[in-house]
Each structure stands twice: as C-alpha cells, then as structure tokens.
C-alpha cells in the first residue's frame, strides 16, 4: 500500500513504470506474434517458442563475438532462426500438423527440452548479456530513464507488426497462409502447397522470435533455461488476444507488461507473475460470461 501511495506522491515513478511496462511488452509482443501465427495456421501450440527466443540471443552474441556490430545481430538472428525453424519443420513439426493439440504440445515440449540441453552443451549455462553500445535517455529531471535498446525493440515490434499485416494481405505467400489457415484441405484442392506454407509459417515464427531474442540479450540477460518465461508470456498474450488478431496481440502484450510492472512495484516482485496469471484467469472468466450472455440472447 505504501508503495501505491508513493506513485501518487511522485507521478514520475508511475510514468517510469508505464514506460518500462510498454517497452517490456513490446518484446513480449514480438515473441507472441509467431505463436499466434503458428497456432492459427497450423493449430500447434508451440511450447518451443521461448527456446527460439533464447537461441536468437545466442546467435546475436555469436555475431558480435565474430567482430560484427552488435545491432547486426538482430537481422542475423532472424535469418539464422528462419533457417533453423524451416529445418525443424522438415524434421519434426510436419509430423504433428494434423494431429490433435495434445500431440503438438508434447512434441514441442520435447523439442524445448532438447534445445535447452543442446544450448547448454554448446554455449554453457552461464548468464550472458550483450552491450549494444546504446545509451539511456532521461526525462522529468532524471526520474524517468528510457533505455534506447528497449526503444529499438518497441520500434521493431511496430515495424514487424505493420510488415506482417501487409505481407499477409498483399503477398502471394501471405494469401496462401491465410487460405491454409481457413481450410487446409480446400487450399490443397486449389493448388496451394500447404506443406510449404506450413514450413514458411514455422520459419517465420522462429525468425521473429530470433529477432526478439537478439533484443532480449541486449536489454536483459539470457541463459539456456530461460525460454519458458517467453513461452508462458506469449501463451498468455495469445489467449487474451485471440488467434490471428495482431492489434490484439500488441495491446495485450503492452497490457501484460504494464500490469507486471505495477504489480511488481506495489505488491513486490514475488507477486508479479501471480498477479499476471490472476489477471488472465479473470479475463477468461469474464469473457466466458460475456459469451454465455450472447448465447442466451441468440436463443
């Protein structure tokens, strides 16, 4: 309670919390786009999502260790992860596309364990971070600080959202993806190579996650077992937003980020996650009640 009063006494703190929340939310949004896409198009709940994020971080680390500028790590991670995602589809994911949801959860869960151990073997279990050499902006007399790399994440989240929307609407592949999402069988009859569409979708998901991971390693820290955070956040965001609802994903990601910050500040960091999940349950219950009311009305 005392902390809550503090926000009213010093509004700059509230501003800082909102800013941090939105910037954090932007990175969650990046991780969640792909999950919404894969869930919507392939009907797969991709538990390995967080591992793609972390792997992207390691790629960015590798790029900077090779002497390239740090920021080049973001596109590099996206490209490498696209290839890995594609490969992963060809090896594993294609077998589970038509199966029930439970099979896909199990398979991707297995993949996530495998990847965690592989990353641990390859890169070690140390906590890693990368300084992109960007600074921090200050506002309101130094009370509010904005890390520039997080702003970059925010901008990237916006750019990718717009690009993704345009791509889905206008390009042949985007149209094929939408058609496949609507009815895979009909799409096949109409001559769409759905296998290719799936592989592309999965690769695209991994690529966006990879870019997110490059940002994570620059703004926060990564280690091989940290993927679950991003999987769980993406899942929460997609559940709240609904499938195939890109603006919804962004809105709920920002909401999640801000809610986390305020919960952490007022209730203490230990309740940060608990609060977010309570919020999720509350949203699901209230939505269910709303739907029930609509159903009654239809009768």
């Amino acid at each position: 309670m005392e902390n809550l009063l503090l926000i009213f006494e010093a509004p700059a703190l509230g501003v800082q919390l909102v800013v941090e929340g939105i910037l954090l939310g932007a990175i969650f949004a990046l991780a969640a786009y792909g999950m919404a896409l894969v869930w919507g198009v392939m009907n797969i709940i991709n538990i390995v999502q967080g591992e793609w994020v972390i792997l992207g971080g390691f790629v960015a680390l590798g790029v900077s260790q090779a002497g390239a500028p740090e920021l080049l790590g973001i596109p590099a991670a996206a490209v490498v992860l696209f290839a890995i995602g594609w490969l992963c589809y060809r090896l594993v994911i294609f077998r589970i596309v038509d199966r029930d949801l439970f099979t896909s959860i199990l398979a991707t869960f297995g993949l996530s364990i495998l990847l965690q151990q592989l990353m641990n073997e390859l890169f070690g279990s140390d906590v890693r971070t990368l300084d992109p050499g960007l600074g921090t902006w200050f506002m309101m007399g130094g009370m509010v600080s904005i890390s520039q790399v997080k702003v970059l994440g925010f901008v990237l989240a916006g750019v990718i959202a717009v690009a993704l929307t345009l791509f889905m609407r206008n390009s042949r592949m985007g149209q094929a993806i939408r058609a496949t999402a609507q009815d895979a069988r009909a799409a096949r009859i109409l001559g769409i190579d759905t296998d290719r569409v799936y592989a592309f979708t999965y690769g695209l998901n991994a690529a966006i996650c990879g870019a997110a991971g490059a940002l994570v390693v620059m703004a926060f820290t990564i280690h091989p077992y940290q993927g679950l955070i991003y999987t769980v956040r993406s899942f929460t965001i997609v559940v709240v937003a609904g499938l195939g609802n890109l603006p919804g994903v962004i809105a709920s990601a920002f909401g999640l980020g801000v809610a986390e910050q305020f919960a952490g500040f007022t209730l203490g960091a230990e309740y940060q996650n608990a609060f977010v999940f309570l919020l999720l349950v509350a949203i699901l219950i209230s939505r269910n009640m709303l739907l029930q009311r609509q159903r009654k009305y239809l009768k």
Partner: peptide, 22 residues
C-alpha cells in the same frame, strides 16, 4: 525494500524503480 525475485526472473525494473524512489 524487501522484494522476493521470482526464480525465472528476466526483468527486475520494478524493484529498481523502488530503489530509485527510496
């Protein structure tokens, strides 16, 4: 300030904002 950080922590800015304030 007496915060318990979650084991799967990826961000501690809310705690640090408290440190700024207090």
């Amino acid at each position: 300030i007496d915060d318990k950080l979650p084991p799967e922590i990826n961000d501690m800015s809310s705690t640090l904002i408290k440190a700024k304030a207090k």
